[in-house]
Amino acid sequence: MTVNDTQTTTSVPRLAARRLSKLYGHVAALDDVSIDFRPGLNGIIGDNGAGKSTLLKILSGVELPDEGAVFVDGRPTLLVSTRAARAAGIESLYQDLALVDTMSIADNIFLGRERIRRVLGVPIVDRRRMRNEADAALREVRIRMPSARVGVRQLSGGQRQAVAITRAMLFGARVVLLDEPTAALGPRETAAALRIVRDMADRGETVVMVGHNLPQMLELADALIVMRAGRVVASVDPAHTTLRDLTDFMVGSNA
C-alpha cells in the first residue's frame, strides 16, 4: 500500500476527515475514518454499503458525524448544513442531481446564489446577467447544450450532469464532491462527464469522486481510497496499483 508522494503529504490537505464515525441504529456506516484530500482527483471505491455515500454526506454538510471532525485547510470546520459546507468552499453533486425541473439552466446554475441588483433596497434577480454568465460557463465545460434559458426538464442525463458540475465550477468551489456522478448516464454521456471532472482536477481543484467502475477509477484518479464496512482499508497511488489489488482490498482478502 502506497501513500501519496512526499511533496504533497507535507502540505496541509485542502480537506481532511479525522476519526469520523457514524452509526445508523446498530450499523456503523462509518467507523473511525481519517482521510486527507488534496488537489486533483481523489477516487473512493468500495462495495455497496461500505459507507462511501455516508462519508460524502458528512463532508457536504447533509449529515453530522457522531464522532470525529472535518478540517478545511487544516482548520476544524463544523459542517452543520449544506449552506455551511458551501461557505467553506465545498460543493456537492448528489446522486440524484438536485435540479429544479421547472426552472431554466441559468436559474439552476445560480440557485441559491442568484445575481442580484438592488433597486431601492429591493433585491431584483438579474436574469440577463445570469444567462450570460451561465452560457459562458457552459461553453467552458465543452458539452453540447441549448441556451441557458431553456428549462432543465428538457435536458438529457449528461446535460443535467453538466449543469450541476458547471454550477460547482462557477462558484470557485475549492472542493467538489461527486457521488457516483455517472451512475445514471449512457456511455457517451459518461465519457463527457468524466472529461469535465478530469478537466476540473487538472485545473487544480480538489475533486472527490465515488465510483464503481474500477478500471475507470484506476485510470482517472490521482489518489484512490478503498472502503469496506465503514472503514478505510487502503489509500493507494493508482499508478502503482493493479485491478487485482483493488478487488483484494475491497473483499478483504489481503487486509
Binding site: 447533509v62 448544513s81 438536485a98 435540479l99 429544479v100 440557485l111 441559491g112 433585491p123 431584483i124 434577480v125
Partner: peptide, 24 residues
C-alpha cells in the same frame, strides 16, 4: 416576477429538496 424572494418561492415549489440543498 422580479425579486429574489419571489424567485425562491418558484424554486421551493419546483423542488423543495433542490432548493434546500442550494441553501435556500
Amino acid at each position: 416576477r422580479f425579486t429574489l424572494p419571489g424567485h425562491n418561492v418558484y424554486a421551493v415549489g419546483g423542488s423543495a429538496e433542490a432548493a434546500r440543498l442550494a441553501g435556500i
